[in-house]
Amino acid sequence: MAQQQTSRRRPGTPGAFSRWMQRTMNARMNRKVRRGRGQMMGMDVLILNTVGSRSGQPRETPVAWFADDADGGRLIVASGGGSRHPDWYVNLMAHPDRATIELPGRPPLPVAPHRLDGADRERAWERIAAAQPRIAKYQSKSDREYPVIRLSPR
């Protein structure tokens, strides 16, 4: 009688482990930001607080940011691994009036998100790419243009 082989895969839906791992890593980074250490891979990090586009539940995502000369705001890039918009971007655009950010050691700050287009995006992208050439390299390998969002204090 042949032995039945057992699977070494984790139970659950496909991708459940990677989603769990992403949530765990995000929670770890959020704790670091709240303790005043907001750096990841040489980039400044903030916590972007959004509301789920379908669930309406609060979401917290660590996101790299870049200084914006225009109004003291911050620039963020929705790279999402190159192939699609990240969930935080979809949530942010669905409920822009409910967005806040947390900077290391500071309370949440309400922000107004604005997706940059045309010359505004190009100027912002040049600053971002100069500060972090790795992001420009990722963009060059993607078929879609990464959205650049300005977060202005409300």
Rank of each mutant, 00 (worst) to 15 (best):
R74C: 04
Q139G: 01
R28H: 14
A78Q: 02
K141T: 01
G72V: 10
R19Y: 09
P153A: 14
W20Y: 10
G36S: 08
M21R: 15
P113F: 02
P110E: 08
G81C: 00
M29R: 10
S7F: 04
A67W: 10
R144H: 02
T13K: 14
K32Q: 15
R28C: 09
L151E: 11
E145W: 00
A16N: 05
Q57A: 13
N91K: 03
M1W: 07
A129S: 12
M93D: 07
H114Y: 03
L116Y: 10
R9C: 04
V33Y: 08
M29D: 08
F17T: 12
R35Y: 04
L46H: 03
R121N: 04
A99T: 13
G73R: 05
S140P: 06
R154V: 14
R19S: 12
R31Y: 09
R35C: 03
E122R: 13
G82H: 00
Q139T: 04
G38V: 05
V148M: 05
G15Q: 02
Q22C: 04
V63I: 15
Y146G: 00
L109K: 03
D87P: 02
G56E: 04
V33N: 10
S7R: 11
R37A: 11
E126Q: 13
R37F: 12
T6R: 15
L46P: 02
G81Q: 00
P133T: 09
Q4T: 13
D87E: 08
G80V: 00
P96Y: 07
A130Q: 11
S53A: 15
P58K: 08
M1G: 15
L109A: 12
L109C: 07
L92Y: 01
W20I: 03
S142W: 00
Q5W: 10
R98V: 09
R84N: 00
S53I: 08
S18N: 11
N49C: 10
L109V: 13
P86G: 01
I128Y: 09
P133H: 11
P11A: 14
V148G: 06
L92W: 03
T100W: 06
G72I: 08
K32M: 13
